[in-house]
């Protein structure tokens, strides 16, 4: 069996919701069945084979090819299997993901990983604003699983995040971890202004603090935190700098905040 490849015939002019083209939804369907499925493109309804050239037969391993930057909700809600995007992906990658792996070999649009509960999303390039964040109207953003970003993350990374882990190898934009409820965000590069804005609980692991800090984030001193050795050990082997962290280097400078809300969140600056 070979991976089910969905190669775009032409880059779509409008956004296309391809959330239904995931291993869970396609399980048991023949290539002809998949080809006959319909997708909404603007006001039009089109068949899958109008948009994509199909090949392969393993629907548990779906590959999108071509300029996929207008394809939205890639891998949304899938429970298992693997989705690969050869290139950039649109918004809402892995929305509500329940299991399996999504790999974007490029950059992803806004709200990547929103509402995901389990599984893993790896974006080798950048993610736009609101990765792991709650979409408007939702109370919670990411609620579990692992989001790996090889490049940079935009603003409001993990806004209203409830659980899970986001690891960013590059930089993160302003308001990183804003309104965070729980979970862990680690950024290897720099973070923008005001990390932890209105953060209730959860952990931001940073290498340095930005110049613009909230007054509600308070310094609690330098400490060795034992849980970090377990956390770092669990990351061992992951791509990027987090996979190579020394599990015994657990001393951090701990800041708590945002005292404007419950203030049980923490910003841990590595190296203490």
């Amino acid at each position: 069996m070979s991976a089910l490849v969905l190669a775009l015939r032409n880059a779509p002019a409008q956004r296309v919701d391809v959330g239904s083209l995931n291993p869970t939804a396609l399980a048991g369907l023949s290539l002809a069945d998949i080809a006959a499925l319909t997708l909404s493109v603007g006001k039009r309804t089109v068949r899958v084979d109008d948009l994509f050239e199909l090949s392969g037969d393993d629907s548990s391993d779906v590959v999108f090819r071509g300029d996929c930057s207008k394809l939205e909700r890639i891998g949304a809600g899938m429970k298992s299997g693997r989705v690969t995007v050869d290139g950039d992906a649109g918004a809402y990658v892995g929305q509500g993901l329940l299991g399996g792996d999504i790999v974007v070999k490029g950059s992803a649009g806004a709200f990547c990983g929103t509402g995901m509960k389990r599984g893993r999303i790896e974006v080798t390039g950048d993610v736009a604003d609101f990765a792991g964040a709650a979409i408007p109207g939702d109370m919670k953003g990411m609620a579990g699983g692992l989001l790996l970003v090889g490049g940079n993350a935009g603003e409001r990374l993990g806004d209203r995040m409830r659980r899970g882990q986001i690891l960013v190898s590059g930089n993160a934009g302003d308001y990183c971890g804003a309104r965070m409820i729980a979970g862990t965000i680690a950024v290897a590069g720099k973070v923008g202004a005001y990390p932890g804005y209105l953060m209730k609980r959860g952990t931001l692991i940073l290498n340095a603090l930005p110049a613009q800090m909230l007054p509600g984030v308070v310094d609690c001193g330098s400490h060795r935190l034992g849980f970090l050795s377990l956390l770092y050990a669990s990351w061992k082997g992951l791509p990027g700098p987090f996979g190579a962290l020394d599990a015994s280097a657990c001393t951090v400078r701990r800041y708590m905040g945002d005292m404007g809300v419950s203030g049980r969140g923490e910003l841990l600056v590595r190296g203490g």
């Binding site: 609980r201 952990t203 034992g226 849980f227 377990l230 956390l231 049980r264």
Partner: peptide
Amino acid sequence: TSKQIAGKRYWR
């Protein structure tokens, strides 16, 4: 505070 690491929950 609690942390879930590799599928297990810990308390700090």
